[in-house]
Design a protein around this nucleic acid. Structure first.
Lengths: 246, 246
DNA sequence: CGGGGGTTTGATACTAATCAATAGATGTGG
DNA sequence: CCACATCTATTGATTAGTATCAAACCCCCG
């Protein structure tokens, strides 16, 4: 676990030893998609693929921001800490998510694997050179940053003005949507994170999150076959809550 | 008030009728700075300068996102609404701030002037063409988006995990720093927004904000010559609070 | 099968919201 | 320039929603 794997390692999963990027499962979901075919070899040369065990830290707040990171599989949490240890999870990231845009010269957040993760590392400075040759990539990075900005502002609205029930409803609806890709099928949602991590994301405590799950269950809005699976049984109700209708 | 002013209007303030951008007071603080001298005429041709009265809406959430906006003078608030009317102010923007990055095809937030404002409007589609000729501008836009992302994540931390006192301390410290430019001198801070707007920014109520001001005042951390002026008298204390030290 | 983290549920405490009233500031028109 | 109307701010009393403290339960994993 946590073994360093050179590009060849990714190739095992992707089927080609020399051009990991060309066959990368995450590419269709990622900014890498903006790199034209003929530049993929260059990209591959910059990429270092590694596996991380659950709990491993991929990026540490305050460290020099040397790399970008791209999640190939698994899920990570992005979080910030207060000096007394309070934690706020700013988001979760899965396949294709590009990390490291919101950065000064040092990282302003930490990243930790919440389940086994494979991720790809690029040197920031070397990627910059690729960007110069490849305006579509810069365009795509800007697009990605703007998308993240929209998401961050939604989270600000949630934390500033929504009740516990509205927060959890928003989270479940949002996660079930993004999950079209990998996380969930229709109304069946897989939650790789713990109740505590959901709490740290929604600005609540673990007890409040648990109680709110119980209440949704009792009211027939969801079923929970296991604590990491949720079936949405009254989506319209949760969506109304999420939108903040009274 | 709120009179529409063509580019000539800005020139009155800037001293030249044909190249408003060349003499724009906000340019040194703005992304426009990335546009090279020789392209300034092109930029000027795209820009439409207008004045807005306090309370006027510059951008309405849900409307087609046709323009970017650049604040030349005054202060605006950016906010989102829930369906029942609860408001969350995601930020305030002053001289040089570029608005409209966090956008899909429609605006995902509203913008309103909280004091008289002069701002500059660019068509998104026409600015895109300028970007093609001017890679430094795209670079700068990406930089700006990333900077905003960092700010947004700080706000998420604040709303998710800080107490009322910590929130107000963070706000005052932050505003006094950014204000180096225009808002404040050293520890003397001008607050163009009302208590209610501060509350809607910090996820609190107007009463809690007012009480927290009173407490800081009673404890000798600040003085308030008027309700829109604050003198920070114990910056170290406020900074410790803002960092969340116990 | 035993241990330990994660989850649920209950009782109580506390922070901030709400409701309410007064005081102060701002702006307008006579 | 003053008086009035309105908006904004402050302060007090009470309530509501979550946090905190505590205990039991469940489940997953070794």
């Amino acid at each position: 676990m946590g073994t360093s794997v050179r590009t060849g390692g990714a190739a095992m999963q992707s089927g080609n030893g020399r051009e990991p990027c060309a066959y990368c499962h995450a590419r269709p979901y990622s900014v890498c998609n903006a790199v034209p075919e003929e530049a993929l070899a260059t990209l591959s040369a910059l990429a270092v693929v590694r596996d991380y065990a659950k709990g491993q830290v991929l990026i540490e707040q305050g460290a020099a921001a040397e790399d970008f990171l791209n999640v190939i599989s698994g899920t990570v949490k992005l979080y910030k800490l207060l000096t007394d240890g309070r934690q706020q999870i700013t988001g979760f990231a899965g396949t294709g998510q590009f990390l490291g845009l919101a950065v000064t010269d040092t990282y302003t957040f930490s990243v930790q694997a919440i389940e086994p993760v494979r991720a790809c590392r690029f040197s920031r400075s070397r990627l910059r050179q690729l960007v110069v040759d490849c305006p579509q990539l810069e365009e795509r990075l800007l697009q990605t940053a703007c998308q993240e900005l929209v998401t961050a502002q939604e989270q600000i609205l949630l934390l500033g003005r929504k009740s516990a029930q509205e927060r959890l409803a928003t989270f479940l609806i949002g996660w079930s949507r993004q999950g079209g890709r990998r996380v969930s099928v229709a109304d069946h949602v897989r939650l790789p994170m713990t109740r505590g991590e959901i709490a740290d994301h929604l600005g609540l405590t673990i007890e409040t999150v648990s109680r709110t799950f119980s209440r949704f269950r009792a009211d027939g809005r969801i079923r929970t076959p296991s604590s990491h699976e949720v079936v949405i049984t009254d989506r319209a109700y949760l969506e109304r809550l999420a939108a903040g209708a009274g």
